[in-house]
């Protein structure tokens, strides 16, 4: 596997029975990136949004209640940990599970915002994330049914995984990683509790990079 062009050299192997996670140069880069953003989510204070009434002197600052803050921070860290799992997983089904966990925690991060408009966007994203799991696990199931194994170590470089399974995987990750579109539209980056929303963008970016590596490898 490590003589393929995309991976780089082998650095570390972590065994969980049949699920053997690996750190190559590529996945370690993604792993360190995600770790950095988990640390940011742990130490960052939430942004307090300021509204200025145009033409007057009035300025409003929105407070973030400790309950919402705690919940959003917890979900951001959970999302980061799921991203760590997804980027170093050496197993197709395990990767799909971590990606589904990322989708759920993304909804959780947004659910902490007290804003009807933002929650509506989160609801729409939730529908897409739910439908996407069908494709995600359908892709893994097709790969398992055809090749009889899910281990990326065994499948690497053989080209045994059918094209349909790869298409399903990519579409599934697209659905789960669609959150930034909703976020950008609902302007939640400027909403109260802003730093935790960064984790949604980071996790989407990293699972896209990882699924590209997987479909080029298997």
């Amino acid at each position: 596997m490590f003589n393929l062009p995309i991976e780089g050299e082998e650095l570390f192997v972590l065994e969980f029975g049949d699920i053997v996670n690996y750190f190559s140069l590529y996945t370690t880069t993604l792993f360190l990136f995600a770790t950095a953003f988990i640390i940011i989510a742990i130490i960052a204070r939430p942004e307090r949004q300021t509204d200025i009434i145009f033409g007057t002197d009035a300025v409003y600052t929105k407070e973030v209640s400790p309950d919402n803050l705690r919940f959003q921070r917890f979900m951001a860290i959970a999302c980061g940990l799921a991203t760590l799992g997804a980027v170093c997983s050496g197993d197709l089904f395990n990767f799909c599970l971590f990606t589904a966990l990322i989708g759920i925690t993304n909804i959780g991060i947004v659910a902490g915002v007290n804003n009807r408009y933002v929650l509506n966007a989160a609801y729409n994203y939730g529908i897409v994330a739910m439908v996407a799991t069908t494709f995600l696990f359908g892709g893994a199931a097709t790969a398992l049914g055809s090749c009889g194994t899910l281990s990326i170590w065994e499948l690497a470089g053989l080209g045994m995984v059918p094209l349909a399974a790869k298409m399903f995987l990519v579409l599934g990750v697209m659905g789960e990683g669609m959150a930034p579109f909703y976020i950008a539209k609902a302007e939640i980056t400027r909403a109260p509790g802003a730093p935790y929303v960064l984790m949604i963008h980071v996790s989407s970016l990293l699972i896209f990079l990882r699924v590209i590596e997987i479909i080029l490898t298997v």
Partner: peptide, 25 residues
């Protein structure tokens, strides 16, 4: 449960995250 134990752990984490969100809301 023996050879693919990590799967079951991640599955229960998904359930845990979903219950946490539901109870928060």
């Amino acid at each position: 449960y023996n050879t693919r134990g990590l799967d079951t752990i991640v599955e229960t984490s998904i359930l845990f995250a979903a219950f946490a969100i539901a109870s928060f809301l």
